[in-house]
Design a binder for these strands. Structure first.
Lengths: 193, 193
DNA sequence: CGTCTATTTGAATGTACTCAAAAGCGGTGG
DNA sequence: CCACCGCTTTTGAGTACATTCAAATAGACG
């Protein structure tokens, strides 16, 4: 159960056996079933979730009930409503399992205990957040500078494993256009090839 | 010169006098004049920049020469091409002063020396990147879920101090539409009020 | 005052959306 | 194991929001 996360952590920091013991003791394994929610808008988000296997999404719902996907998470990714988790204020996002999944949860309290007891984890989280931040910046620029079709191709190319695991209307909700339009993009491409 | 940054750092971590000495010794004050570049696409970005006073922007230029602004930075903000800085690979962005500005630079080497000598800074940078990441996520969702007019109003409302300091066509390049369209949004609003 | 840049305005165009209906696909129960 | 039901995807017509291009106006700076 902990293999994946330990391997992942080892990419950034080295832990002693004692530290591994502390770390894993602060994690809670949890199974979530397809369509189950880990966070609901309005909740105070209690945990960060590391995906051991499965697939989840986080999304925002506007006043009209429209859904906008901010993130997909598969194996070795983290997912939560980060703002809600960090500030312990009500969430603006939902986090939902798209497949039966196994996650490792670290609660707000455990997270701070971890940082206090093993300050190296400040470094670890700094590095992974930096990466996430850079990726998000690129997503913004890509949205502005590329056509919808280009962004779709970029997505397929970059996350082929996700594209096959989630319905098309969710890919559209991630890329910021309608499912109908995505269908048109795809049929246009099929005719050409 | 260092007052602003020390006050800023003190919001997140406490430093001893000796640590303050180390920290400030790793910073290099630099004056940049309006229109001067701190980073150019293709450069290896050598420093993170903390803005003491003035205003800068970072932007991407596509093949057609179109500019897309990823960030404005005023007093108490950081600006750089973060990916280039962290990985020491060629930059994809430009960083340019929009006003005569004073910045404090921390070089790649100084940054790592700082983290080694005062590991508390891992915590500091973790926290500020987390905030930046959350803001960026919100920007993505806002782009998808709101109309251009709503996003413009949100921007003016949230960054009134920036709106008055940069030309409109740059506000448009930040929000992701054309300057002509921004002008139309504004004139429409003036007629109504 | 004159020049260069930024903003405004308008007309024509295009990209993506809405709405509606048909087709396809997958899971569930008989 | 097949048939049916519900959800997802496709297709098409009409529309809306934002762009492009061009020209006029306004502002800033030397």
């Amino acid at each position: 159960m902990y293999d994946a996360i330990l391997k992942y952590v080892a990419r950034y920091i080295e832990l002693t056996p004692a530290e591994i013991e502390i770390f894993t003791s602060l994690l809670t394994p949890r199974k979530v079933r397809k369509r189950q929610y880990l966070v609901q808008s309005g909740d105070i988000c209690k945990a960060e979730n590391f995906v051991v296997n499965g697939c989840l999404r986080s999304f925002y719902v506007d006043e009209k009930g429209e859904e906008y996907i901010s993130q997909f998470a598969i194996e070795d990714w983290w997912i939560t409503d980060l703002n809600s988790f960090l500030t312990q204020t009500p969430a603006n996002y939902y986090v939902e399992a798209l497949e039966n999944s196994d996650v490792l949860q670290i609660s707000y309290e455990a997270y701070h205990e971890l940082l206090t007891r093993i300050p190296k984890f400040d470094r670890f989280f700094r590095i992974i957040i930096q990466k996430a931040y850079v990726a998000t910046q690129q997503r913004i620029i890509s949205t502005m500078s590329k056509t919808s079709e280009e962004r779709y191709l970029e997505f397929v190319d970059r996350y082929p494993n996700i594209e096959q695991r989630v319905p098309q209307y969710m890919v559209a909700a991630y890329l910021g256009f309608t499912p109908e339009f995505l269908s048109k993009i795809r049929s246009r491409r099929n005719k050409l090839s």
